[in-house]
Design a protein around this nucleic acid. Structure first.
Lengths: 254, 254
DNA sequence: TAGTGGTCTAGACCACCGG
DNA sequence: CGGTGGTCTAGACCACTAA
């Protein structure tokens, strides 16, 4: 094996990576065990483990203690386009998530984790224009596509607005989702502000979304503005970074 | 030292993490060297290194070969708002990056890495509507704020469009940036499509952007559409995830 | 129980940085 | 040059999983 000056563990990782990309190691397949790789490449265990760590942080493999390391089957990327909040979708009785899923050809499901009052966190309070610690309505859900967890979303609604909209306290707020209910009660929406950032998943998020440790997530915080300029809702979404691409259209005029 | 059943490297990492958060190890300070930690905790080098890797992937420290490991000082987050391409900014002679920087109160600088022909990569070719491998003009730059690397951007322009716009071959395309030059030559812009995704940084990106290994990046691919519907430019930007928040406004109508 | 990955050691050598 | 981090070995023991 030529040395090329590069560390052996990187060369081993590269080798396995090519086998994965070329299909020699197809998705779901078990990667050769540490002991086999030790013999194959003639290196110590630590070197093989570093190579595996490399592949793991690149999201190519997933390892299970006592079972082995497996090639990850990349689920098709979901595209979240910025037209998913078009009023025409709401009028047609579709909530944003269901409309997206239909377009993607997957079977959506939603697991409502919590609906009820909470003390508003400081960052959300700032966006809602209320005081930190005030009571707001929170709706926390986990969204699935074909039974695989895709994203978590937590929605915060000022208490006075929630009170005039009793459907928001139901697990299922009805056709068109919560934005449709807000507009039913005269809270006409003017625009949304989405703030996108990325970071590594916390332990909690890793388990909720079935991610491997150290996997990145996209965090999207959306503020819904009414025609009066008031923020009617703040929704924080956490998505596995390797499962989403967000799309935004921006007009050149102005 | 109580064992508590947890791996020693995690306990060491935890210990150092607390010192960092409590200020015993302030930002910029050098973390004790490996050999010192080996003596202090009575462990082997590999164990200390695993602890350091832990802190590095969490973004708490940054290490330099031959110099040492240092506590990271978090730079303030930059906000990228979707109005940065307003035509009025271009008319005022400002390129997007300079307009942003002025608003953020930092001193911008740009290092042009390459300007010239390249064979277009497959994914970009698809967006440009050309064939993979065709010749296009590429402009690759590294952007700084207050001398700290913030993002890399690679711009791809179809060759026929580049030819009618000689300024695009210059390092500095002039006031208003390349979009202003395109419009000077009658290529009026209609809209932009931004596709946002996140992933872990490659080794190359880590060194260009001075990131620690395993740090997440935001990748933003922007396609600029002309009034004729043709894609006039594709620009791929890679940003350190912990330094940016992207903002998008979406009208509720439609 | 046999095989897998996870942790750890003691020691070696190399590559890089600064005085 | 001495000190720093980076790579690697050979071997040990542990923890988990499946048959």
């Amino acid at each position: 094996m030529m040395d090329e000056g590069r560390p052996r563990y990187l060369r081993i990782a590269e080798d396995l990576r090519h086998q994965i990309l070329e299909g020699t190691l197809p998705p779901g397949e078990r990667v050769p065990s540490e002991s086999e790789l030790i013999h194959r490449y003639g290196v110590a265990q630590g070197t093989v483990r570093k190579a595996m760590t490399e592949l793991r942080t690149r999201g190519l493999v997933e390892t299970f203690h006592g079972r082995g390391t497996f090639v990850r089957s990349r689920p098709p990327v979901r595209r979240k386009s910025s037209d998913r909040f078009r009023r025409s979708h709401r009028k047609a009785g579709k909530a944003a998530y269901l409309a997206e899923s239909e377009q993607a050809g997957v079977e959506p499901s939603v697991h409502v984790l919590y609906v009820g009052p909470v003390e508003v966190p400081a960052d959300v309070a700032h966006k809602l224009g209320t005081t930190s610690g005030n009571r707001v309505l929170a709706r926390r859900s986990l969204y699935f596509s074909d039974r695989a967890p895709m994203e978590t979303a937590t929605s915060y609604i000022p208490w006075d607005i929630a009170e005039e909209t009793p459907e928001l306290f139901e697990d299922n707020p009805g056709p068109g989702g919560i934005y449709a209910r807000l507009e039913d009660h005269g809270r006409v929406l003017e625009e949304f502000l989405e703030e996108v950032s990325a970071r590594l998943a916390t332990k909690e998020e890793s388990s909720e979304l079935a991610l491997s440790a150290g996997a990145p997530v996209i965090e999207l915080v959306r503020s819904a503005y009414g025609v009066d300029g008031r923020v009617l809702e703040v929704c924080a979404t956490v998505m596995a970074a390797d499962r989403f691409v967000l799309e935004y259209r921006i007009p050149a005029s102005g």
